[in-house]
Amino acid sequence: MTHTALAPVEPKVDYGHAEPIAIYFDDLDAMGIVHNARYAVLLERAVTPYWTARGHYLDHNGLSTPDVFHAVREFAITYHLPIRGAGEVLVHFWLDKLGETSAQYRFRFLSRDGRTCYAEGKRAIVKLDQATLRPAPWTASAREVATSLLKPEEAA
């Protein structure tokens, strides 16, 4: 039996970002499909490297910027087709809205070739002040990164 590696995918999207992510055995339910509760974690696996590469991350030294201290306010998802088995999918994400203290992501879970949409949804986050746990404004650095994720008509 010959094992071949999957060819690298160069995700192409007109706006936002598409991140390849791995689906592991422990992401699956007893039927061999991605468990519904795992989609929020899988979205994090896609969004985190994007922000990390741009200087916004949490590591053993703490927060790189205060913008990393945020909470999910809303998460909604619609499932279209099950993702079967382990492997790789693309997560296409972008921002619909960027407020003073909040942001709303939209996202789609896609096949590697981008032709099949397994699920889509939205996630709203609120940046918090670490001391008061009240909403706090995004820094200029976070706003710059976030603006790059805005869908073109939203950026106007």
Rank of each mutant, 00 (worst) to 15 (best):
D67W: 04
L149K: 10
M1Y: 11
L149P: 03
P20R: 09
D59V: 02
R112D: 07
Y79I: 01
A30N: 08
T101F: 06
L149E: 04
Y15G: 03
G55P: 01
E100A: 12
A7N: 12
E74T: 13
A156M: 10
F25T: 06
F93I: 04
R115N: 13
R134P: 02
A7G: 01
N61S: 14
E88S: 08
I77P: 04
D113C: 09
E88Y: 03
T65A: 11
A155Y: 05
P49S: 04
P152C: 06
T147R: 15
A142E: 07
Q104W: 11
H35L: 01
R73N: 06
A5F: 10
G87T: 02
L58W: 14
H60R: 12
S64A: 15
H60I: 15
A7W: 03
P49R: 03
L43M: 12
W138L: 02
F25Q: 02
D14Q: 08
N61Q: 14
T116A: 05
T132Y: 03
P20M: 07
H80A: 05
E153F: 10
V126C: 06
V34A: 05
P152N: 02
P66R: 03
C117G: 08
Y24N: 11
R54A: 03
D67P: 01
I83E: 00
F25P: 00
D14Y: 07
S141R: 11
D27P: 00
V126P: 01
V91M: 00
S64F: 11
V41S: 14
D27V: 01
R106I: 06
A76S: 13
T78H: 14
T139L: 03
L150E: 00
T52V: 14
R38N: 08
A40K: 11
Q130H: 08
E88Q: 12
W51I: 05
V89E: 01
I125L: 11
H56I: 12
I23W: 08
R143T: 10
C117M: 13
Y57C: 13
H17L: 07
F109P: 02
Y79Q: 07
P11W: 04
E153M: 10
A53N: 09
P20A: 01
P66T: 05
R115L: 13
L90Y: 00
V126K: 06
D129F: 11
D14M: 09
A140N: 10
L128G: 00
E10Y: 07
G32C: 06
A30Y: 04
L150H: 02
R45G: 01
R123Q: 13
V72F: 04
A142Q: 04
R73H: 05
L95T: 13
T2I: 15
V34Y: 00
A53F: 08
V9H: 00
A46G: 13
H80I: 01
S141D: 10
V9R: 04
F75Q: 06
I83S: 04
V47N: 00
Y118A: 05
D96W: 09
G32I: 06
T147W: 01
H60V: 12
R45T: 03
H60C: 11
S141Y: 09
V13T: 15
R73E: 11
P137T: 09
T139F: 00
A124V: 14
A53G: 10
P137A: 08
H80C: 00
H92M: 02
Y39A: 00
A37G: 12
N36H: 14
R54L: 03
M1N: 10
Y24I: 08
